[in-house]
């Protein structure tokens, strides 16, 4: 789903959304919050794995990581991963403990930058806390950079003994 379908959706939308949601989206510097949008706006980040009713993707604001090209971002994210107690649930190196592994290349709630951002900022069912109230967006993006920097193993699906 790309710009083309976004335009189609904008054209077809009957629900009044914030004008910003229908702007042509490229790389919006990310506060994945509604900054500047009207009160009724919903920011929906794209989840590639979703199935769209009617085959139509809802209006989405494409959000990407402002820290993606910052070489130090992943290192800073690694420190945050410890200081914000992420490792207490996800294990040191995010290999999984109470919470799932974040290094296996598999994602319950989507692996795009925006999905991971939302998982951290808004929390998820089954006990992932919402950190958006205590972490500035720039800090959340550093965590996203760190998590995305963890290389998934080449083959996770089969164990041969």
């Amino acid at each position: 789903m790309t710009h083309l379908s976004s335009r189609l959706v904008c054209a077809l939308a009957i629900i009044v959304l914030a004008a910003s949601a229908c702007r042509e989206q490229t790389d919006v510097p990310a506060t994945a919050t509604t900054g500047g949008a009207s009160e009724n706006a919903l920011v929906i980040s794209k989840h590639e794995g979703r199935i769209f009713a009617g085959g139509i993707a809802p209006p989405a604001e494409r959000v990407s990581n402002s820290a993606a090209h910052d070489a130090k971002a992943a290192d800073e994210g690694a420190s945050l991963f410890t200081s914000m107690n992420c490792d207490g649930c996800h294990g040191g190196g995010a290999v999984g403990a109470v919470g799932p592994s974040l290094t296996d290349g598999r994602w319950r709630y989507g692996g795009a930058d925006a999905n991971i951002y939302r998982s951290i900022a808004e929390g998820r069912p089954k006990g992932m806390p919402a950190y958006g109230g205590v972490l500035q967006p720039a800090m959340v993006w550093r965590l996203v950079a760190y998590i995305k920097s963890l290389p998934p193993p080449k083959d996770v699906s089969t164990e041969a003994w």
Partner: peptide, 18 residues
């Protein structure tokens, strides 16, 4: 469950090393 890595088969999004 936390320590043994790969005894979980039920969640495709949580795959761990032994």
């Amino acid at each position: 469950l936390l320590l043994s890595g790969d005894v979980n088969s039920a969640d495709p999004a949580d795959v761990r090393d032994p």
